[in-house]
């Protein structure tokens, strides 16, 4: 144990969850520092979960103004415009989040995330990005990986009925509970090696198992399209569909994959679904919260390394998309 005990106030407030993950995990949570970027519905859900869980601090980065779109699935934004007059998205959300748990420091960092240096990211244990370009995703992921300490990186995106989460815990060692041959509980040490986002998406498609979620490929097409067209994430409409389908065909050909493997209907849904669907935000934000709690507490098997959910079939699927040697 770390020596420092939970206060009476903490024990009373966190009673029910300490019964799930233990006092030791609760202490680690209270010393962890989280950074999030991209304050839309999914991240709002995650922030709520992690503030309730009782992390040490949560830092929000998002200089964008509050728009109609941002309002649609984000319960942290009051509908009264006077309340966010002149404030950034991060500032408005920060005010709401502070109320959830006075024991967590919630603050805003202004500026362009992709320009922040290593010493900035070094202050955190967990970095989460959402609604950012492919370039930014890769850049932030690399910055985290260059640090001497392990900073876990997560990227989440939800469109229409679909959601995706990527996890990079780099080298992660934890104890896993098992029953031995006499059915006695024992703990074994386990080491996991995670690839970076760049490494993952570079794995040739034909080398992936056949049953990999179609959503994985579809999201790569959209991501690439927005990148080459110089769009902001989600800045895409039905007018783009023919060009998106053309890109899909090209990518499939280049990857020697039958293009029917990525249904056009799915592409159309993602192109149209610039707004998040609140139930999916709750689900992805919930799973993300759970994974972050696992990574901080060292309790439980963390997922490797993508998670997909589609409300249409209701499946929440884990896919391990790693280069063969990791």
């Amino acid at each position: 144990m770390d020596g420092e005990e939970l206060t009476e106030q903490e024990t009373a407030l966190y009673d029910r969850q300490i019964r799930v993950w233990g006092a030791d995990a609760q202490r680690r949570l209270s010393k962890s520092h989280i950074l999030v970027y991209g304050m839309k519905g999914t991240v709002a859900e995650f922030c709520k979960n992690i503030v309730l869980a009782g992390v040490g601090s949560l830092t929000l980065v998002d200089d964008r103004a509050v728009t109609e779109d941002a309002l649609s699935s984000n319960f942290l934004i009051p509908p009264n415009e006077n309340m966010y007059d002149g404030k950034t998205l991060a500032e408005v959300c920060c005010n709401s989040l502070k109320e959830f748990n006075s024991m967590v420091r919630v603050s805003v960092e202004k500026g362009d995330l992709s320009r922040f240096g290593g010493d900035f990211f070094d202050k955190f244990d967990i970095v989460i990005v959402s609604c950012c370009t492919l370039t930014t995703k890769k850049l932030i992921n690399e910055k985290c990986r260059k640090l001497s300490k392990r900073v876990a990186f997560y990227a989440v995106d939800c469109r229409d009925s679909c959601g995706e989460m990527f996890v990079d815990l780099q080298k992660y060692i934890y104890t896993k509970k098992k029953l031995d041959e006499n059915n006695q509980p024992t703990a074994i040490e386990r080491e996991l090696q995670y690839p970076s986002f760049q490494e993952s998406i570079s794995v040739p498609w034909r080398k992936l198992p056949r049953k990999v979620s179609k959503l994985y490929f579809a999201m790569r097409v959209i991501e690439r399209y927005e990148e080459v067209e110089g769009r902001n994430p989600g800045q895409i409409s039905i007018d783009d569909l023919p060009a998106v389908l053309k890109l899909k065909k090209e990518l499939c050909e280049a990857q020697s994959m039958n293009e029917s493997h990525i249904p056009n209907a799915l592409m159309e849904k993602l192109v149209m679904g610039r707004r998040e669907f609140p139930p999916v935000c709750a689900i992805i934000g919930g799973i993300l919260g759970q994974e972050v709690i696992k990574a901080i507490s060292g309790k439980g098997d963390p997922l490797q390394n993508f998670f997909f959910f589609d409300a249409m079939d209701g499946k929440g699927i884990i896919e391990n998309i790693s280069p063969p040697n990791t």
């Binding site: 024990t11 009673d15 029910r16 969850q17 300490i18 019964r19 799930v20 993950w21 006092a23 859900e45 709520k48 979960n49 309730l52 869980a53 609140p278 139930p279 999916v280 935000c281 709750a282 689900i283 934000g285 919930g286 799973i287 919260g289 759970q290 709690i293 409300a311 209701g314």
Partner: peptide
């Protein structure tokens, strides 16, 4: 006492994340 209370009171083990996920599934 913490453990004894949990056993004696049949106290529910509860976290926000699972409730959030389940609520999403209910709405769907």
């Amino acid at each position: 006492l913490f453990e004894a209370k949990g056993i004696a009171g049949n106290i529910v083990h509860a976290v926000a994340t699972t409730n959030a996920v389940v609520a999403g599934l209910i709405v769907i």
